[in-house]
Simulated scan of single mutants.
Amino acid sequence: MAGIDPQRERTRLARRIGVVFGQRTTLWWDLPLRDSYGLVRRMYRVPRDRFRENLERCVELLDLAELLDVPVRQLSLGQRMRGDIAAALLHDPEVLYLDEPTIGLDVISKAKVRGFLRDLNAERGTTVLLTTHDLTDIEQLCRRVMVIDHGRLMYDGDLAGLHEAGASERQLVVDLEREQPPISVEGARTVRVEGPRQWLAFPAGASAAPLVARVAEAYPLVDLSVREPDIEDVIARMYAGDAEGEAVGVTG
């Protein structure tokens, strides 16, 4: 990890990585955030100037200014999570491990954490490895996805490939001028009809443009939209297929 053998050089490796646990804080429970960060600086022997620069950046981007003098035990879960992430980054780790970083957070706190992690990766090149059951984390943060079931790797690749491995489908929602029998066009199947509105399913990896052209040529269109597949459904389908003994793709 980071060019270091974890078994032989654990202390050296610890200085190169940061870790955040969603259900367990690494901060000192009865101390204000500011004092906890001071202890982190001493533990990792971070130079004062570098520590000050990193702290100011984390405080600004994670909106921690009003929390620095608040004891950790008085912080909400979302505030504590942001505080933990800042603590894990004060020594400039090359790799950041996050275990359920958005678990139990409200919508606003989740958005702040995700935005910060995107900026961290883009601006500093920090590798972020996260485990999560919140699949929106995956959609908004991850370029590479690994799906694991009972310790077995089911998928390893990008998000687009995940949809293909899960045989997911997009939907073309079509509003017609009047009620029609189910639309019949090449490359799609009608899965739902409600009055003049119809839903057509087609493979997630296929372009919608040819399908739209075929529908527009043959039917009186009023409006249409494309709905992307729900990643939860994709992964649920993968698990269900695996339970039935179907092969699931693993890419390099």
Rank of each mutant, 00 (worst) to 15 (best):
I183S: 03
V185T: 11
R170G: 06
G125W: 08
R178I: 03
P182G: 00
E94F: 00
T136S: 14
V107L: 14
R170M: 12
V147G: 08
T126M: 02
S184A: 12
K110I: 07
D149M: 01
D134A: 11
S207K: 13
D156Y: 11
R192W: 04
E100V: 03
Q180H: 14
P181M: 07
S168N: 09
V128M: 08
G115W: 07
E100T: 04
T131K: 05
P196F: 05
R189T: 03
S207F: 10
L200D: 01
P101T: 04
L172G: 03
A201V: 04
N121K: 01
L98T: 12
V191H: 06
E186P: 05
H163Q: 07
H133E: 09
L130Q: 10
A122D: 02
V174N: 01
N121V: 02
D99G: 06
L200K: 01
D106E: 06
G166C: 05
F116H: 03
D156I: 07
L200Y: 05
A165H: 15
T102S: 02
I138Y: 06
C142L: 07
R178N: 04
D106A: 00
H133P: 03
L153K: 07
L129S: 09
D134S: 08
G161E: 12
V95Q: 00
M146L: 15
R192E: 14
G205S: 12
R192A: 09
A206K: 06
H150Y: 06
V107W: 03
L200A: 08
L117F: 10
R114G: 04
H133A: 12
E139D: 13
S207G: 10
S168W: 01
L200T: 02
G187W: 01
A206L: 11
I138N: 11
L162Y: 09
L117R: 13
T136W: 08
L117V: 02
Q198M: 08
D175T: 11
G161Q: 14
D99V: 00
T132W: 07
V174E: 01
G157D: 13
F116M: 08
S184D: 15
L96K: 09
V107D: 15
K112C: 05
R143L: 09
T127N: 00
G187N: 09
V128A: 02
A209W: 09
A208T: 07
I148D: 03
F116T: 12
I148S: 12
G166Q: 13
T136M: 10
V145T: 10
R124L: 11
T126R: 04
E177A: 05
A204F: 10
L162P: 12
I103A: 14
P203M: 07
A206P: 10
I148H: 09
Q140S: 11
P181G: 06
T190F: 02
E123P: 00
